[in-house]
Design a protein around this nucleic acid. Structure first.
Lengths: 229, 229
DNA sequence: ACAAAAGTGTTGACATTACACCCATGC
DNA sequence: GCATGGGTGTAATGTCAACACTTTTGT
C-alpha cells in the first residue's frame, strides 16, 4: 500500500435499473448510448463517477435528468466487477434499483441518455456490456423485495384501488392471486387506508380508493410486525 | 467520457467478513492493520485490488492466506462507497461474506494481516473505517440467508449431530428453538442424511451423526421446493 | 336489462406451536 | 445408580388455499 498509484486507476460507474408500471405492464427504462463503446445501442442508464462524487446523488441526478422524478425510491443492489466487463479499462459498476411513478415521469434526452424509453420487461431487448445480467438481478430483487416491504406503492398513484394493487403484484411476480385471499390479507394491515373516495369515471362499477400511510407502516414495524404477501 | 483520466483514478478494495463457529459461539475474523492509516488497529481482512484482478479470486486468496482454507463459501454483499470512508482517496470497498469451518482454519500472519484472530460476534470491538457497518450488514445477511439456504453446513464439520445443528441456528439467529419441532421439520428434508454413525466419546449419551447431501439438495430444489427454517 | 368488474365468507387441509417423559451412555 | 444430554408424539391453534355468488355502475 506504500505506492498508491498502482491501485488508484480504476473507474467506478453506476447503473440504474428503473422500473415503472403502466398499461398493466412492468417496464424498464433503457437508453441509447451516446458515446463509444457501443454508441447507439440499448443500455441501462448510468455513468462514470467522479472520485469525489456520492453514488446515491449520482443515481438521483441521472434519474431526475431522464425522467424528471425527484426523490425516487432507490436501493443499491450489488457491484458488477468482471475484469473484462468494460473495454476501456477496469470499470466496476454499482447497480441500483429504482422505482418511479409513470404519471410523474416525462422522459427526455439529457447528457446521460439519448432516446430514453420504457420497455416491457417481458420483451426486454439485448443490452450492452453486462447490462442484461444487471437487469435480471434487479428484477429478481424487486420480486423478492415486494413480498415483505411496501415498496410496491412507489409504482402506483397516491390513491389506488385494491384491484390495481392486486394486478400489480400479479404482474411483477408473474403469478395469479385469489382476490378474496388477497383482500383478507390486506384487511389486517392498517397502513393501507380506505379513503372513503371512489374511482372516477371507470367503465363499470367504481372501486374504493386507498392510500399507503407510511407513518402507520412505521408504527406497524415498531410493534415488531412484518407483513408478507 | 472523452477524457478518461478524470474517471480512472479511484481504487477498489475488498473486505471479507469471515465467520466461523467454535465453542458454541459465532466468531468473526479480525486482523490488526499492518500499514497506515490506522496501523495496529482492528479491521476486517481485505485489501486493495489491482486493475486486472478478479475480486472473487482476491477474496479467496486473502482468506486462504490467513486461514489456510480453500474453496470457502463466499458471497458478495454490497459496495460501501462513502466518499470519505478512506482517508487516502476514493476507495470503494466491495464487501464479501465468507464462512469457514473452524477445525480446518489455522490462523497465521500474512502479507494481508498481522495477528488475525477470532472474536465472538457478541463482543465485537470497534473497527476502523466503516468496518463496523460492513460487519453488521454481513451478520444481518447471514441471519436472513440461513433461513432459506443450506449455507449453515459450511460452519459445521462434515458429520454433525442434530443438537449441534440446532444450537448453531440458535446461536446465529439469537433465538431458541423447540427441539421436537426443529427435528420434525428436518425429518422432511431428505438432503440431511442419517449416517448410521454415532458421535465418538461425548461426555454423555452420544448423538447420531448426519451429513448434508448437496446432490439431494439440488434435486430438492429442482422439484421447486424451498426449505425454510 | 345487460355487460363488466367490484366486493364479500366458509370450509378443509396443512403448518405451527406448546408441552413432558423415557433412553442411552460415561462416570 | 446417577447425572447429563439425546431422542420421541399428540392435541390445539393458526394460517393458507380453494371456491361462487351478489352488488354496483355505465351504457
Amino acid at each position: 500500500m506504500s505506492d498508491n498509484s498502482k491501485y488508484f486507476n480504476s473507474a467506478i460507474s453506476v447503473n440504474c435499473v428503473v422500473f415503472t408500471y403502466v398499461e398493466e405492464k412492468l417496464k424498464i427504462l433503457l437508453i441509447r448510448r451516446e458515446f463509444e463503446p457501443f454508441k447507439g445501442l440499448l443500455a441501462l442508464p448510468g455513468g462514470l463517477i467522479y472520485p469525489n462524487e456520492d453514488l446515491q446523488q449520482a443515481v438521483s441526478h441521472i434519474i431526475e435528468s431522464i425522467t424528471g422524478n425527484k426523490n425516487v425510491y432507490k436501493k443499491q443492489l450489488q457491484a458488477f466487477t468482471d475484469t473484462k466487463r468494460h473495454p476501456s479499462g477496469r470499470v466496476v459498476s454499482i447497480a441500483y434499483l429504482a422505482l418511479v411513478n409513470h404519471q410523474k415521469a416525462i422522459l427526455k434526452d439529457s447528457s446521460f441518455a439519448i432516446s430514453p424509453d420504457w420497455f416491457n420487461i417481458l420483451e426486454k431487448p439485448q443490452l450492452v456490456f453486462d447490462h442484461d445480467s444487471i437487469a435480471e438481478t434487479a428484477l429478481q430483487h424487486l420480486q423478492s423485495e415486494i413480498r415483505n416491504k411496501p415498496i410496491i406503492f412507489e409504482l402506483l398513484d397516491e390513491k389506488f384501488t385494491l384491484p390495481q394493487l392486486q394486478t400489480l403484484y400479479e404482474t411483477i411476480l408473474n403469478i395469479s392471486l385469489d382476490k378474496r385471499n388477497f383482500r383478507r390479507k390486506l384487511a389486517y394491515l392498517d397502513f393501507i387506508e380506505d379513503t372513503e373516495e371512489m374511482q372516477k369515471n371507470p367503465l363499470y362499477r367504481p372501486a374504493k380508493l386507498y392510500v399507503f400511510n407510511k407513518e402507520k407502516y412505521n408504527e406497524f414495524c415498531e410493534k415488531g410486525m412484518v407483513f408478507s404477501l
